[in-house]
Amino acid sequence: MDHLDKLESRSIHILREAYSEFNNICMLWSVGKDSTVMLWLARKAFFGHVPIPLVHIDTSYMIPEMIEHRDKLAKKWNLDMIYGQDEETLKAGNTFPNGQATHLECCGRLKTDALKNTLNGNWRRYRYNHNKDEYELDDNREPYTGVIVGARADEEGSRSKERYFSPRDRNNDWDIGDQPPEFWDQYKTDFAPGTHVRIHPLLDWTELDVWEYIQREKIPMVSLYFDQGEGKRYRSLGCGPCTETVDSTASTVDEVVEELKTGKFSNIAERDGRAQDKEDGGGLEELRKDGYM
């Protein structure tokens, strides 16, 4: 087995454990490269099927191509697609792009709060109806007790501390100092009522692993990752107003891989283009404790 085979098998093993051990499970899909690879791994784990609902948190500021790509794949791969959003904040317009909030406040509302309340069922969920080809209000408000997330350990400091199966308490809190032990392919699959578990099948993958896997498996990626002739592309995706492109002429997966291996990005962190990481020394960890991915 080569390096990618090993990563693939471990991730599939984790996805299957999660599927068997949790009754109410979902997978967060941001439409970015990591969670799309995770989705692909789920199709492999379940032999072409995805028996787990996919949850997308739609801030309404997502770059439009992302939503298009999401719905295209949802149709093509027959996905059980669900989205949720902070309808109140959006209605009131209390967002950063409106000048009514700071970066972190805006992320806190549109991402963290929306995620928390979509997962626990406090807020509305919209589910894709394949027959009608539209999203409709979902009756199911059951809280998800297992949430599969595409975080990678190499992204930044706080993520390197995660477990494959990482508990969150009633308040969605993450006690970094007191995490369960995890060894011999045995994971925390037992949990007290009211708590839930985050599951991280991609924890051991690096950014380059992800791209090499996309290359090997020919996984369809949203076009934003590639230069469309203007010498710019996204390296990391998020909300339009807060995610910057990088200067790059990589227009294919092969070129992205080559650029990461030998080019100018081989020594620059991936989230460099994300504003919220810089605003506060430990900002991301704070967001992370609150549930932000």
Binding site: D2, H3, L4, D154, T206, L208, N267
Partner: peptide, 9 residues
């Protein structure tokens, strides 16, 4: 950084 991956990891 993490830009070489291989079977020898």
């Amino acid at each position: 950084m993490n830009n070489k991956t291989g079977d020898k990891d």
